[in-house]
Design a binder for these strands. Structure first.
Length: 223
DNA sequence: GACCAGGCACATC
DNA sequence: GATGTGCATGGT
């Protein structure tokens, strides 16, 4: 698995997602939409101070009050409603407990999450992977940018197609997906940001027709 | 002051 | 199906 190992060798385990509980992962996944993580952390700390990191509290809270608490995360009125949408879904369908989802197969659960207004593909996959431990690969702006810049994928693949590149190539292992995505974010943050060639990038050798990286490692999955 | 940051829904063509 | 726009804060 050279591509993965190149990243792992360069950065080591990342220990993503930076949240304490599954609830915080869900909240963070919604708040970080088009937003720097630092601003999300501030919002989560305000929620914690307000005692609002609790499904029942969030369920009972007025959307306007919630919006004020998460102001630092930007687009706060929109995100407050999106959080409320998720919490309503959680109570209506699963009794206000994420554990209620345990018996639901991942593909169906993903469809259910996508049916919630404000939960798109990346947010749904982040919740599935990082809050629920499901093997659902997360594709984000960094993933796309890094892979396109190193010519490992066609630039006009859409979200689901990029996701499939990984999921078809890798064993359905949530710990692996977790680490892989975290590593892609790390290299995306540090490299590949400008149009200039990535000097010293751990992926520098993975250009042009290098063996399509994410697929290496597939061998273990098949059979 | 422009531009970006771990998107998404909605309108429009 | 593809593209454009609003949402809105905080860092560089």
């Amino acid at each position: 698995m050279p591509f993965y190992e190149a990243l792992m060798g360069a950065y080591g385990p990342r220990n993503w997602w930076p949240a304490r509980t599954p609830l915080e992962v869900v909240v963070g996944a919604i708040l970080t939409q088009n937003t720097a993580w630092r601003n999300v952390e501030r919002a989560i700390e305000r929620l914690r101070a307000a005692g609002a990191l609790d499904w029942s509290v969030l369920h009972a809270m007025d959307a306007g009050d919630l919006a004020e608490l998460i102001r630092s995360a930007g687009t706060y009125k929109v995100k407050a409603q999106r959080l409320k949408n998720f919490v309503s879904f959680l109570f209506e369908r699963y009794g206000g407990d994420l554990a209620g989802m345990d018996a639901v197969p991942t593909p169906r659960l993903r469809e259910e999450l996508l049916s919630i207004s404000g939960i798109g593909r990346e947010t749904a996959d982040a919740i599935l992977l990082y809050a629920l431990g499901r093997p659902s690969f997360v594709v984000d702006a960094y993933t796309r940018r890094v892979l396109v810049r190193h010519r490992l994928i066609d630039p006009d693949l859409d979200y689901e197609e990029i996701k499939a590149v990984f999921e078809d190539a890798l064993p359905a292992d949530s710990a692996l997906y977790n680490e892989y995505h975290a590593l892609l974010v790390e290299v995306g943050k540090q490299q590949c940001r400008t149009r200039a060639r990535c000097q010293g990038c751990p992926l520098e050798q993975f250009e042009h027709d290098e063996p399509l990286s994410p697929t290496t490692g597939a061998e273990d999955a098949e059979q």
